[in-house]
């Protein structure tokens, strides 16, 4: 019976360790979804260190091509953020387009994006399809 008790204790220990690892890995890989004003406010307050998705519209006239991608501004009407994107933006990326940029803040408070998702309407989503996000062909280093 003693062997059984030790076995049960070992199983519990393994389970506890596994759950802790699970929690840590999960919390490290959560990508928060923020509007531009929420993200800017959070950044001003000293937060926003992790990876996040920034939702807004591309400010007309702000798009410039860089050697490695594009630079533009996104806004949600209240706040505006500078974005540098590595890689070519997807085909539907244009002035005024609603976009979600995934990346993190650089030290100079420019948002370094490596993935641009074009937002879609609330059309039906077929099985096995993310909301068309993958269709953007832009998953470079996500």
């Amino acid at each position: 019976m003693k062997g059984r008790a030790i076995g049960a204790a070992a199983v519990c220990a393994v389970a506890v360790v596994a759950i802790v690892v699970l929690g840590v890995v999960l919390s490290k890989n959560v990508v928060y979804f923020r509007t531009v004003s929420e993200a800017v406010e959070e950044r001003a307050g000293g937060g926003g260190d992790g990876r996040l998705r920034l939702a807004g519209e591309v400010v007309p006239g702000s798009i410039t091509e860089t050697a490695r991608g594009v630079r533009f501004e996104v806004t949600d009407g209240e706040a505006t953020a500078d974005v540098i994107h590595r890689g070519d933006p997807p085909d539907l990326f244009k002035e005024g387009a609603p976009v979600v940029c995934e990346g993190r803040w650089s030290e100079s408070d420019v948002f370094a994006s490596d993935r641009i998702l074009i937002k879609h309407g609330s059309e039906y989503e077929p099985p096995d399809v993310d909301s068309g996000e993958k269709a953007s062909g832009d998953k470079a280093s996500a």
């Binding site: 890989n29 990508v31 928060y32 998705r53 996500a142």
Partner: peptide, 24 residues
């Protein structure tokens, strides 16, 4: 389901990145 729970319970919108799944 974590993103659904986070939104339903705490009204936080988030997604779980692929590295979580790959690593685990």
């Amino acid at each position: 389901v974590y993103p659904l729970l986070a939104e339903a319970l705490q009204d936080r919108r988030l997604s779980v990145g692929e590295p979580y799944f790959d690593r685990m």
